[in-house]
């Protein structure tokens, strides 16, 4: 299978005060056609920043290096106008908060038409009809009426459906979903995940799913990349990650979450707190919280070790 997206040695630096700080360090991953890749991690691990850099949506003054290959083009080298043709057309994006990502003063229909007009040159009746068709496809009841309504008239779940309709309007090859269900209730989350899964398999769209919820990952993803403090610490297929986690952080995460089935026993938390950007530990960034840390871990940062095919982990314990 061919890779839709290939991110190589992505490095992102933010300017805080006078100095630059590395928010993302040497991140590489790829997404194949029709595949869903989960980018998992806690707040501040760099997962959202990574996705924004793919879309080139980071603020000016941010240093980005590396390569983001979409097909045979390096997105980081495109001009702003070439990039605009890709956003919303070849790569769609949905965000966590559907209220703030929709424009409150425009009707729903118009916001979908906008994207159709920009990228597919559809106008007038044809665009309006396509918009309604899109709304119907994302499971919105009475699409003709909803197209005439404003975002605040819809519930959170409905708004997220609209966002998906906008993101999918031009049949993108890649959909980036940044915590798409975090703001929603579980029953609504189930609806939205279901919808995303169906749409993706229908159109063979690849998905980059960014989330902190391991349950959502297990349910949606084919492959998983676990991020911690700006780095990918472990990567593998969803089964490898959940059934045979290798990195102490991945293991810790899986052990620390309460489960809905099985025996109820005391949780095994990861001690300590996520390090801040300005205060990254030397060596392996997880070492201060790691129960198995060696002296080596505090001095030098580990490289990836291949566990088996597709499965690699960045930890000195594998050495």
């Amino acid at each position: 299978m061919s890779n839709v997206l290939e991110v190589n040695h992505l490095q992102i630096q933010f300017k805080i005060g006078e100095r630059y700080h590395e928010a993302v360090q040497d991140v590489s991953f790829s997404i194949r056609q029709g595949e869903t890749l989960g980018l998992v991690g806690e707040s501040g691990c760099g997962k959202s920043v990574t996705s924004l850099s793919i879309m080139r949506l980071l603020a000016k003054g941010t240093k980005i290096s590396g390569e983001v290959k979409y097909g045979d083009r390096d997105l980081l080298k495109l001009s702003e106008s070439q990039m605009r043709k890709i956003r919303g057309n070849e790569i769609g994006m949905i965000f966590q908060e559907p209220m703030t990502s929709l424009n409150p003063v425009h009707r729903i229909g118009r916001q979908i038409v906008e994207s159709l007009l920009l990228h597919r040159g559809l106008t007038g009746k044809r665009a309006a009809d396509t918009a309604i068709e899109m709304l119907a496809r994302v499971g919105i009841p009475r699409p003709e009426q909803i197209a005439q309504e404003y975002p605040h008239q819809l519930s959170g779940g409905m708004r997220q459906r609209v966002m998906i309709a906008i993101a999918m309007a031009c049949n993108p090859g890649l959909l980036i979903a940044d915590e798409p269900t975090t703001a929603l209730d579980v029953t609504i989350q189930a609806q939205i995940l279901d919808l995303m899964r169906n749409l993706a398999s229908e159109h063979r769209t690849s998905i980059l799913l960014i989330t902190h919820d391991l349950g959502v990952v297990a349910e949606m993803c084919d492959r998983v990349a676990v991020m911690y403090a700006g780095k990918i610490v472990e990567q593998g297929t969803v089964r490898q990650i959940f059934h045979n986690p290798q990195h102490p952080y991945t293991k810790g995460l899986l052990n620390s979450i309460p489960k809905i089935t099985g025996e109820r026993k005391r949780l095994q938390p990861i001690e300590g707190n996520v390090p801040s950007l300005r205060n990254m530990p030397q060596g392996c960034r997880f070492a201060p919280r790691c129960p198995h840390a060696l002296d080596k871990c505090r001095v030098s940062a580990p490289e990836f070790f291949e566990i088996e095919e597709e499965h690699k982990s960045q930890c000195w314990l594998h050495a």
Binding site: V186, T187, A190, L193, V217, A218, R239, I257
Partner: peptide, 14 residues
């Protein structure tokens, strides 16, 4: 019942 069934389980084989 619906609420319980909607909770995603962190196990890809379930």
């Amino acid at each position: 019942k619906a609420l319980l069934s909607a909770v995603p389980i962190p196990d890809p084989d379930v």
